[in-house]
């Protein structure tokens, strides 16, 4: 939340047309400075290609169909891995949040596994799965699992017990209590987990594709390094940034849609 939203007096002077564009001012300025530095020769092209050169490299890859292919492969891995890991994390979060027995059985184990950096498993994963799709999906799913598990669990445990008592007094069945009280109460926390998980999803995928892959954006960047195509390397990095932004915006949009009751999301 920006300071502009906090100060109502200042807010009244905000120009609504500029509002959506404001966030792009800084990236645009960086791009301009970068271009200027390259054109004037201040930064040698071997170190950093100009934005125009990167755009040109992107255009060439787009024409050849290579770019779309690699983006699609990476996107597919990211979303499938996210769905698998996220669903399992959500399921464990629900089970351990709602059942003492389940929590006693599994929580300690999960907390131990959580403290192993999942990227440290890459050598093991390569031995298990080779470098095919399952290796990447496994790593992404594992990385996404924990933030979603922890935040779902936290969300459910912190639902106001007074509201739960109220639900019981008014005769809600267990499933109704879950649907009307517990799940909506846990939702803000679950969304925090989703946004953390999205960050980890990209991180894991980049590392996995860079180390062990034969397609995808990370692979494209590593190939380009072999052939000294620094413009393609930079292009890959920029695309990651853009995809990360898209994923984050999507989750924010979903948040706004489902949490419109929350004071933080109310329009003034």
């Amino acid at each position: 939340m920006s300071i502009v939203e906090i100060l109502p007096r200042v807010r009244s002077f905000r120009l609504p047309r500029i509002d959506g564009l404001t966030q792009w001012i800084v990236p645009l300025v960086i791009l301009l400075v970068w271009q200027a530095a390259c054109v004037t020769g201040y930064v040698p092209a071997r170190v950093m290609p100009a934005p125009t050169d990167v755009a040109l490299a992107g255009w060439k890859l787009l024409i050849s169909g290579e770019l779309a292919q690699n983006i699609w492969v990476s996107f597919w891995r990211a979303s499938v891995g996210f769905l698998i890991g996220g669903s399992i994390g959500f399921a464990f979060g629900l089970a351990n949040g709602l059942s003492q027995l389940s929590s006693k059985l599994t929580d300690t184990t999960l907390q131990m596994v959580r403290n192993v950096p999942h990227l440290a498993l890459i050598p093991l994963v390569i031995l298990w799965f080779g470098i095919d799709e399952s290796a990447k999906l496994f790593l992404v799913a594992l990385g996404v699992f924990f933030p979603i598990y922890l935040n779902t669990l936290h969300g459910i445990r912190t639902v106001d017990p007074q509201l739960i008592e109220m639900g019981r007094i008014y005769g809600m069945s267990n499933s109704e209590l879950f649907r009307r009280v517990i799940f909506p109460g846990a939702l803000p926390s679950i969304f925090v987990g989703v946004r953390f998980a999205l960050g980890i999803m990209w991180l894991t995928l980049i590392v996995a594709e860079t180390i062990a892959a034969s397609s995808g954006l990370g692979y494209m960047a590593m190939q380009a390094r072999e052939f000294m195509q620094i413009d393609v390397v930079v292009l890959s990095i920029l695309i990651y940034a853009l995809l990360g932004k898209v994923a984050d915006s999507a989750s924010r949009g979903l948040e706004r849609l489902t949490l419109s009751w929350h004071p933080a999301f109310q329009k003034h």
Partner: peptide, 29 residues
């Protein structure tokens, strides 16, 4: 169960439900 109702010091409304659906909760079954 619907014959006996309690009101607490805290309103205990569901923040994610509209005022009307909060009242509907009171209908019990």
């Amino acid at each position: 169960a619907e014959d006996i109702r309690v009101m607490f010091q805290e309103p205990r409304l569901l923040p994610w439900a509209s005022v009307l659906s909060n009242v509907e909760v009171g209908l019990g079954t």
